[in-house]
């Protein structure tokens, strides 16, 4: 094997590895809306969680939620409850469930499902307005969900 190919193989393995212990969106088990076990087995990074929650193209949670712990966010929306104290109101498992698919906790909620890949009407390819190409990716990947949850559990009053 040429060194070049060898390198490619290592990269491929490295990329494939997380998938082995990762729970795919379709395999997630919800118990009354909650997801008991980590989607990746790797501890979430709360700082990365903040970045995801405040970045338009990622979670953009602040489009709807205000968070007193993040005073620098410009123009947070006020469509949804403020997230202050979410870590007191909900367990980690419940928060994982809410972020992955809030409709399992709040029936018919306006909050989008961030870890779901099927059951949509005319899913698009991101924000291009064109049809999605299969397989559809969730809005956030498994580790990003864990990062967001890692930040949410810190929101204690």
């Amino acid at each position: 094997m040429s060194s070049h190919l060898w390198h490619a193989a290592v990269v491929a393995t490295a990329m494939a590895t997380p998938a082995i212990c990762e729970t795919a969106p379709k395999d997630v088990i919800y118990a009354e809306g909650a997801i008991e076990t980590s989607l990746t087995g790797v501890a979430g990074n709360p700082e990365e969680g903040v970045r995801i929650m405040t970045t338009n193209a990622l979670g953009n949670c602040v489009a709807c939620h205000q968070i007193a712990a993040l005073p620098d966010v410009e123009f947070p929306g006020n469509i949804a409850p403020a997230l202050d104290g979410a870590g007191d109101r909900w367990t980690e498992a419940e928060l994982r469930g809410i972020v992955s698919n809030a409709k399992m906790t709040f029936e018919g909620t306006f909050m989008p499902a961030f870890y779901k890949v099927d059951g949509f009407t005319r899913p698009g390819d991101g924000f291009t307005g064109k049809a999605a190409t299969e397989p559809l990716l969730p809005v956030l990947n498994a580790q990003q969900i864990e990062d967001v949850v890692a930040f949410l559990v810190t929101l204690k009053e």
Partner: peptide
Amino acid sequence: YTRFGQLEMSCANCHEDNTGLMIRS
């Protein structure tokens, strides 16, 4: 009233249920 797309939102979700509120700015 159909909730379209991966964000599953209908016209009504924004313009009927949430009129007057802020979605970001």
